[in-house]
Amino acid sequence: MNNGEGKVALASRAPQRIDGRRERSRSSHRRIVKAMMELMTAGDLMPSAARVAEEAGLGLRTVFRHFDDMDALYAEISDTVADRVLPIAAAPFAGADWRANMRDLTERRARIFETMLPFRLAANIKRYQSPFLMGQYEQVIAAERDRVLHLLPPAILAERMTAEALCATLSFQNWRALRHDQGLEADMASQVVAHMVETLMGTLPPHIE
């Protein structure tokens, strides 16, 4: 083989080696995120980087090579969970009136919060040590509250006590208390939240629609 042929052969093999490294890197990245989420789902809400590496079957240095710190890993998990719940949250409301839309939101929140439960419990533990998680917490809480208020007509917004009570009832904190503190199954927790919403709507004066 002459020098020209050798250079051509090396050039043809180089992209394959590069692609192989990239694919291994992507595979490791996916395994790390999957390991972290599985540990949280199983109840380990504060897994160490070493535990994540063990679960993923990778070296500790590989974990830190993909994520500079644990905040970066939490950010990746947040994006993954958001992809799961966004189709539910973003679907348009088509109820005949605000009460129907509020019932729809109640059912959606049960599905969304149950999907998010282990990851938000984990984030709540860590957020006081993480500016990223604290900022994300504040944004999510504001967005959840705004969604409830957006569905309420002006007459209901003027009844501030009821409006605030609906926000609290449909909050993640309420779902966490029912599921985590009171130990209710998801179906029962969903029924309890629906009962609370119906009770609050039933306290409004008849002329408010």
Rank of each mutant, 00 (worst) to 15 (best):
D146E: 15
S171E: 05
E107I: 01
P131R: 14
I141T: 09
T169S: 07
N124Y: 15
R111I: 03
A168E: 13
H150G: 00
A186M: 08
C167P: 04
M134Y: 11
R120C: 03
W98S: 09
S190N: 06
R179W: 02
P131D: 15
E107S: 12
P92H: 03
T162V: 15
T106S: 13
T106E: 02
G135A: 06
I156A: 12
F132G: 00
V193Y: 03
A94K: 10
P87D: 09
I112K: 02
R145E: 13
R145L: 08
L121G: 04
A123L: 07
V81R: 02
A177G: 00
E107M: 13
I141W: 00
M116W: 09
L152W: 01
N101W: 04
I125L: 15
G183Y: 12
T115F: 02
E114A: 13
L133R: 02
N124P: 00
V81P: 01
D181C: 05
I156E: 06
R160N: 12
A110T: 07
R145C: 09
Q136A: 12
D181H: 15
A94F: 07
A94L: 11
A168Y: 05
A177L: 03
H150T: 12
L152P: 04
M188V: 12
E185M: 08
F113V: 00
A100C: 01
D146T: 06
D104I: 08
A177I: 01
A96V: 06
R127C: 11
D181V: 15
M161H: 09
V197R: 09
K126T: 10
L157R: 15
L86M: 12
E138K: 11
T162W: 04
V148W: 04
R176M: 11
H150I: 01
C167F: 07
L133Y: 04
N174S: 12
E107G: 10
S130W: 08
L166N: 01
A122M: 10
I112Q: 01
Y128K: 14
A168G: 07
M161E: 13
S171V: 07
C167Y: 08
E138Y: 07
T162F: 07
R147H: 11
L152E: 02
F119W: 06
A142V: 06
A168L: 10
M116Q: 14
A155P: 08
R84E: 14
D181E: 14
H180P: 00
A100R: 00
R160Q: 15
W175G: 01
G183C: 11
A165P: 00
P154Q: 04
I125S: 01
A186P: 09
M188Y: 09
T162I: 15
L105E: 10
A90D: 13
F172M: 10
M161N: 09
D146Q: 14
Y137A: 12
L117D: 10
K126M: 13
Q173F: 09
A94T: 13
A189V: 01
F113Y: 15
F93K: 00
H150E: 15
R109V: 08
T106K: 08
A82N: 11
D104Y: 05
R103F: 05
L86A: 14
R120Q: 13
S171T: 09
L121N: 06
P153Q: 10
S130F: 08
P118S: 08
